[in-house]
Design a protein around this nucleic acid. Structure first.
Lengths: 250, 250
DNA sequence: CTCTTCGTTGCAGGTATTGCAACGCTCTTG
DNA sequence: CAAGAGCGTTGCAATACCTGCAACGAAGAG
């Protein structure tokens, strides 16, 4: 498979980090001067690279329309749904996908498990920030500023004995969530329902999506759900990869 | 220079238009099945392409970070300034660059000619929509909706006998501008100053930038400036190309 | 069931890419 | 002022790599 193209992409990624001189490119990527030069020349000819004054190379404007096209086709659901399907049939419980969309966490997809639980979740509906695990896991990975903007003014309505009813408790729960890498909902909304949720990263590395497994406590209590976390993690990592997140950076 | 890379980019541009099947790619670009397939495979492996269900290829998310990088470096001035410089020394008059920035036309750069004219233009300052040629040429190429939004409520202040003092006259002037491909300011602001302006296209093909040549009527009346239009056109086309606009689409 | 269309893979030939070496240029150093 | 080092650029020959072919499997149409 055309490794010339692969190299070109490698070069692009490299100059995307910050403006690079030709020599930097050759050294870091182990290419010969002439090779790197000619790669950059073709990229430049097609508007994928550009020389700023000083001779350093930066990414050209030609990629912008491509990115627009990519974003147009970024319907998270079409990409993730197959994973949800597989996961749900495999573990037999209901799986949710929620996404941060301008300041709100919204359910974007859902696959029911075998013993269908009638949950309050519906695709397109906002998620309760302080109870739902998907919300917690997204908030937990958000930049401080965004997070507090979302929390302030939030109504920490008490649904049951275990509901977190104030911001302070919630924030410490988020810290805990971030540290262990997943979130839980221990019957905080509906007493008899619990879930675990893991983060999904988009192409920019931000956590704007969460994926959760939900079950009746009577069917699968929290201890059981916790055992699924490793499995869930491999799925979320696959999904992140499908969404363009590359954990393997040089 | 690596034509494999050029082909890969061609393929990318093609699938960016809309989802394409492998066969479409091979036919339209005149490549062999295997060639196209392997190109797409490498692009896919690097997140530059993606297969949606149905097997059609679309642009992948990997390009999004690149585009962000490109936008970071998109300081129009650094790109265009050299052209302004050259043009100004060549023709000896003052050259302006103005850009549409959220609903306003703003001077972003300027190179003084030899016999420096003290003009009211200053970099960063908004442009008078109804008198300045740069504004006219941008407005003339704007989508109907955007244009009328900008015109409505505009104060068609009369500076002199030739100023267009109402929207109707202005709109018909814009039509004329678009048809002939350049705009004029016939002493509409300052009686003794006139200019011609041509459109510059950004990478998306939109006209958000205008470039103008300004001169004292005593030095170079409109008839003289008009003779520079062809020369000015080659410059604006170069600039458009530098900004990523590709007029040569298949 | 057969035929067509589409995507995929292995292989050999040959083109296009690579790496080398030499050159011009600028900037630094003696 | 001259010599040297670093960087980007170009021409050329060798060969690694891409291409195109041809055959195969799968899926859908007739």
């Amino acid at each position: 498979m055309p490794q010339t193209v692969a190299r070109a992409i490698e070069v692009l990624r490299f100059i995307a980090e910050r403006p690079r001189t030709l020599t930097e490119v050759t050294q870091m990527l182990g290419l010969h001067k002439s090779t790197a030069l000619r790669l950059l020349q073709t990229l430049e000819a097609d508007g994928f690279a550009r020389r700023e004054d000083g001779g350093r190379y930066v990414v050209g404007f030609g990629v912008i329309p491509l990115a627009e096209s990519a974003i147009d086709n970024l319907d998270v659901r079409t990409i993730v749904h197959p994973h949800l399907d597989r996961l749900s049939t495999e573990i037999g419980h209901t799986v949710h996908l929620a996404q941060l969309i301008d300041g709100e966490v919204v359910y974007v997809d859902k696959v029911e498990g075998r013993g269908t639980v009638a949950m309050g979740s519906r695709i397109g509906l906002p998620v309760e920030l302080h109870t739902a695990a998907v919300a917690k896991v997204i908030l937990a990975h958000l930049p401080e500023a965004d997070r507090s903007r979302m929390i302030e003014g939030w109504d920490f309505r008490g649904y049951g004995p275990r509901t977190l009813t104030n911001a302070a408790d919630y924030v410490s729960e988020l810290r805990c969530t971030r540290e262990r890498g997943w979130a839980e909902d221990d019957g905080e909304m509906e007493d008899y329902i619990n879930c675990v949720a893991l983060p999904v990263r988009d192409t920019t590395g931000r956590v704007t999506i969460g994926m959760s497994v939900t079950a009746l406590r009577a069917v699968a209590p929290l201890e059981i759900l916790r055992e699924m976390v490793p499995r869930l993690r491999t799925v979320t990592e696959e999904v992140s990869a499908d969404l363009g997140w590359r954990s393997d950076e040089t």
